[in-house]
Nucleic acid binder design. Sequence first.
RNA 1: GGGCAGUUACCAGAGUGGCCAAAUGGGGCGGACUGUAAAUCCGCUGUCUUUCGACUUCGGUGGUUCGAAUCCACCACUGCCCA
Length: 425
Amino acid sequence: MNLIKELTWRGMLQDIMPGTEEQLNKEMTTAYVGFDPTADSLHIGSLVPILLLVHLQKAGHKPIALVGGATGMVGDPSGKSEERNMLSEEELNKNIIGVRSQLEKFLNFDATLPNAAELTNNYDWFKGISFLDFIRDAGKHITVNYMMAKDSVKKRLEGDSGMSFTEFTYQLVQGYDFYWLYKNKNCKLQMGGSDQWGNIVTGTELIRRKTGGEAFAFTCPLIKKADGGKFGKTEKGNIWLDANKTTPYQFYQFWLNASDSDAATWIKIFTFLPETEINSLIVTHDANPADRILQKKLAEELTKFVHGENELEKAKETTEKLFSNAKASVDSLSVEDLASIEGIVKTNYSAEKIKAGVDILSFLAENSIFESKGAARKMLQNGGVSINREKITDLQMMVDKNNLLHNKFILIQVGKKNNFLIAVE
RNA sequence: GGGCAGUUACCAGAGUGGCCAAAUGGGGCGGACUGUAAAUCCGCUGUCUUUCGACUUCGGUGGUUCGAAUCCACCACUGCCCA
């Protein structure tokens, strides 16, 4: 399989350095992608770089995932309009462990393979390099003029928040990573998001000047929504790959909610389905967009990829229960149905209080569905709250045992998509 | 070290003594329409609260004033220029 051709039709190729394809065709090539340990889990924004590594390995090359323990301490100015806050070392270490364990799920680390994946942490080599060593070894080979010409730097110089020396140095630090991997692991290729292009090129430049060797690079486009919105953010923040932070159900829902135009682009990027299959899916989808064939397939494939078959099934079941009969009365949900709903917010509530009756505002606030009664009131007035699928507009309403489903549950919806299940016992 | 400009809510950005919880735009949330899309339209968006009202906000601390985001002093931070 030709990696470059594969990535091209999938729309995963933005910039590519001349000679990269030849290099890949010539021999098994080692390539790396860097991941930022800014949080203890990766989110779906990191999914594309991960997929680059997976595709690379599938094509018979050797992937290295680099966790930026050192670079994380510096802070990448790319795409940032302001100086970043520094993470404490402790936080950083926690994050590195989290990120590392996730990457392990997606790549094949079987050491018997010639192209087994590898994980590295650039802190391992940076910790032994002194500042003086660094500015002599790396700094001497790259001019400030060169570094200033980078987009990430230029933007910050033109802006009005300035840039610290620390962040200015970032590209050199990242460049040194590439050089180090080139020298020690025969890594000749770096991949990443297109915002990384500048940093990556500094690396190839450093390699060329220090060793006279040749290194290559390509980047993938940054994923955007068709309406220009930020990808991967919802009202609840990032979509994480960690099931504890974003449940598989929420994860599944995120993809299911993709717009038509996004779904067609995303299914190529985020799934491994072959071109012919995707094309026919698109045709089917266009014939009847309301069925959302693309969204469903996208959501299925990805949830399976990230969380596994089991979790996918559960996510689909929950979706089925909460949405497919949304118009039907709640009575159609059995005790088992309700008890086994997974992935949504569940809370317990005291049976005594229900027996006595609670006013709706207190009830919503006490169950942390809203932060305060005031917030609950506003939402109620906006017509955004349903109890057991019936829209509530009466602010005085009392919640009591008549509202219990199967004597035990209360199903609350805020908006169309936010479901809460209260178990009363 | 010197000079100049600035710091307002999630972001951008108006407001330069009372009509300011603070314009406007973006973002976010909710509603209508739909397909759990997109586009469009409508509402909400400091906190708490029985929509009364109370409380806390305009970098920080003090002050002037009946009254301060607005005036004064000092401090902090940021940017630009000079050394």
